[in-house]
Design a protein around this nucleic acid. Structure first.
Lengths: 215, 215
DNA sequence: TAGATTGTTAATCGATTAACAATC
DNA sequence: TAGATTGTTAATCGATTAACAATC
């Protein structure tokens, strides 16, 4: 095991390992070798072993990996057992969708509450989660100290709210607005840029039809 | 300009360039050099010039790039001017959020219609888009031949619907379900894995608090 | 024990950065 | 013209893959 610096490429593969191990486990499979897992995931066995070796020794020669064990180890590395507190800013359509569908607990977070500016929403509950006024945000954060805030607000409000949350001491922002936030460096920002994602698909499709027209 | 193979890393940066150029343009700025753009984006000028050189020569020595022009070029590379047809499968919370908020036209797609199994939704309109029965899917695709289908359905239905869409001839799937789809190789899949994204944030936050505890 | 598979070191490959001649 | 900045070639850096001794 080399403690060193862990590259972003490795970190972004961890959730994918986690997902595959989850599925194997739910199918009742007990063990797997790096080469079998690699075959399923479409990556090399080398890469899997190399990646895991950043964090420890989780396998056994001649046997491979115990799926339940490895899943738990990766979950631990990702911090899913910490159950950090999380709040949602903006309970519009997207905020609602997350409130209704997304399993925050499985990703290691405890969803506390949501905030919105709409009078119609304030005071209501969605899926058992209370929606509060943005006026309460400061007091709430001071008292509860949530680790992460989900940004599902209009583009125009994003940077201002991000600054406010940074000042209130959140550690991370899960940003669904299509803007590039600039925040103090102690705050981690993870972007979910729908438009970027769809544009890469657009690129691949148009390259494909170009290629077809050439032939 | 080198036509060659274009790496995924380059393709994934294109939408980001596009976004920055959009913003500069809307602020009325006319030209920018690779070094200034790099400074804003937090990347090197070299990388920008190297990336762009995959597709052509868009700048001018001693001047830099005309923002409007470069934006249009990148838009064209990404295929935003093709206005491919797109359908949404699953008009639940997330499907609704996309129907209401997302600007498909700006990403180069024409949103035709949505499909769902819910009797309550079938026949209604959301934001001017008709929601049809899944029973109509085959006939609709045969007639209209949409290029892309958005998958906002429950996990359990995802693979089956993906297979069906692949057989119906779609070129791309924009997959919001947290499953790994396996489809015929002529179909491109672009995943938006919320859970993976949040887990990387979880990782960074827990590493941070570990580091703090050590000191 | 023999076979399988790990963790790790070394080799390769690809992506990023630096340097610079070309030229607006 | 002089200064600025490109596009591209070369150098560096990092990530992926291959190989293999260690060992269950």
């Amino acid at each position: 095991m080399k403690k060193q610096h862990i590259s972003d490429a490795v970190i972004r593969r961890l959730p994918r390992y986690y997902r595959y191990l989850d599925e194997l486990h739910s199918r009742g499979i007990v063990r797997i070798s790096s080469s079998m897992l690699g075959k399923r995931m479409g990556i090399t066995a080398s890469q899997i072993r190399q990646d895991l070796s950043c964090f420890g020794e989780f396998g056994q020669q001649g046997y491979g990996y115990n799926i339940m064990e490895l899943r738990a180890e990766i979950g631990h590395i990702l911090g899913v057992d910490e159950q950090n507190r999380l709040i949602i800013i903006g309970a519009g359509h997207l905020g609602h969708a997350l409130l209704q569908n997304f399993d925050f607990a499985q990703a290691g977070f405890r969803l506390d509450t949501a905030f919105d500016v709409s009078e119609a929403l304030i005071g209501t509950e969605v899926n058992g989660v209370a929606i509060r006024s943005m006026d309460e945000l400061d007091g709430y954060c001071a008292a509860v100290r949530p680790a992460v805030a989900v940004l599902t607000v209009p583009k125009s409000a994003a940077q201002e709210i991000a600054d406010r949350l940074a000042a209130l001491g959140v550690s991370g922002l899960w940003n669904f607005t299509n803007v590039e936030l600039s925040v103090a460096e102690h705050v981690f920002v993870e972007n979910v840029h729908f438009a970027d994602s769809l544009l890469t698909l657009s690129y691949r499709i148009s390259k494909k039809s170009e290629a077809e027209n050439e032939s």
